[in-house]
């Protein structure tokens, strides 16, 4: 079993759902990113690193701002490789890489996944790639022994669920809302229906993301049947406000503990 799947098992054996914090690489600065990331990873089951992209059309204002700030400091693919490598030397928590497809294509699919796997990445999340649009991507990630994670949304039809899970080896990233990333006070009720429809088609773990902001939303996700929760914007918002993002993660942990 891959390190990514094992992380879900381990969390479950500890009476929780998997905690998956996200930070944009290089935000607020390359060095401070490493400090925050390490602190969060220590209290998490998986850790998601974002490779910033100039046009993040799946992201809300908070992650947009973080991406712009990282890019303005010259954080590009090579720098993210370096940051990932340094991070992976200091933590055993499996690292995921989230990025839009264009930086992958510009670097070369095979080389991109191979280099990130060597740097210590265990899985990839690609929010703007319906996997059947370019099957070579999932294949190249698999050859580099990276787990693949694709998104499904409340609007996804049963046919799309079948197609997308067919390319997934890590977990299903269930988007809680029709919308972009961003912390919310409540998740829509329909998320339960999506998780049930996904679970009817696959044995893969399902993590809920978009809108997870603290204990209440994490609990809602667990009640909806999630095996894990992803939290990103709420952490970055805490950093922006000069607060400790681990407090947000701890609140999410309380909600995700049974």
């Amino acid at each position: 079993m891959s390190a990514v799947r094992e992380a879900f098992e381990r969390a479950r054996s500890e009476g929780r759902r998997a905690l998956i914090p996200y930070l944009t690489a290089g935000y607020p600065s390359p060095e401070r990113f490493l400090d925050y990331a390490l602190g969060l990873a220590e209290e998490a089951d998986l850790f998601e690193v974002g490779l910033p992209f100039s046009d993040p059309l799946g992201d809300g204002p908070v992650i947009q701002r973080a991406s712009e700030r990282a890019l303005a400091q010259g954080v590009r693919t090579k720098k993210v490789l370096e940051l990932v490598e340094r991070l992976s030397h200091k933590t055993d928590v499996p690292l995921l890489l989230m990025t839009y497809i264009n930086p992958v294509l510009a670097y070369g699919k095979e080389r991109f996944f191979r280099d990130f796997a060597e740097a210590g990445i265990k899985g990839v999340v690609l929010p703007d790639l319906p996997p059947d649009e370019d099957p070579e991507v999932a294949r190249a990630a698999g050859e580099a022994e990276l787990a693949t994670v694709f998104l499904l949304a409340p609007t996804s039809t049963d046919r799309r669920i079948e197609v997308v899970t067919g390319y997934t080896t890590g977990f299903v990233y269930a988007v809680s809302v029709t919308g972009v990333t961003g912390a919310r006070d409540r998740l829509p009720e329909e998320i339960g229906a999506l998780v049930r429809r996904v679970k009817a088609k696959t044995e893969l773990p399902v993590a809920i993301g978009f809108g997870i902001s603290g204990e209440a939303t994490a609990r809602q996700a667990v009640e909806a049947g999630a095996d894990g929760v992803v939290v990103g914007s709420a952490l970055i918002r805490a950093i922006e406000a000069g607060e400790d993002p681990r407090e947000v993660l701890r609140a999410v942990r309380r909600g995700a503990t049974l």
């Binding site: 992209f53 046009d55 890019l71 590009r76 703007d128």
Partner: peptide, 21 residues
């Protein structure tokens, strides 16, 4: 330009060597 993906489509684009538009 060089080929890449922007706004949902694969096409010729102005981008840097890292695929940033």
């Amino acid at each position: 330009g060089k080929r890449g993906v922007l706004h949902g489509s694969y096409m010729y684009l102005l981008q840097d060597e890292d695929g940033q538009i």
